[in-house]
């Protein structure tokens, strides 16, 4: 279980307990948090689950796969801290994680 804070682009925060094994994307979708769309349901095929991970967490969220890198390379509003939230698996180590959302997912 990890408490994750999802911050919408306008600053609205949603703090949610997400079960281990779920992805950060699923934590948002299952709780109807706006701002993460997840067209492909986690198949790493759409890049509509884009988030910015706070720098302090970068080591703990795991490495990006080549597929994720490649999808992000062509997504909108990408920064160094960009991740596809469906590719981050939740574990106790992510308790307190903060992710921010881009202005738009399309």
């Amino acid at each position: 279980m990890a408490k994750i804070t999802y911050v919408e682009h306008d600053g609205t925060e949603h703090t949610i307990e997400v079960k281990n094994g779920m992805s950060v994307m699923e934590g948002a979708i299952k709780n109807n948090v706006p701002g993460i769309v997840a067209d492909c349901g986690g198949a790493c095929a759409c890049a509509t689950c884009h988030v910015y991970v706070d720098a302090a967490w970068e080591g703990k969220t795991g490495e990006k796969s080549a597929m994720e890198e490649s999808m992000l390379d062509f997504a909108e509003n990408v920064e160094d801290s960009s991740r596809l939230s469906c590719q981050i698996k939740v574990s106790d180590a992510l308790d307190g994680l903060v992710v921010r959302m881009p202005e738009s997912q399309h």
């Binding site: 890049a47 597929m67 490649s70 999808m71 390379d73 062509f74 997504a75």
Partner: peptide, 10 residues
């Protein structure tokens, strides 16, 4: 081939 898909879509 994600680049072809992502850029193609745009």
């Amino acid at each position: 081939a994600p680049p072809e898909f992502m850029m193609g879509r745009k």
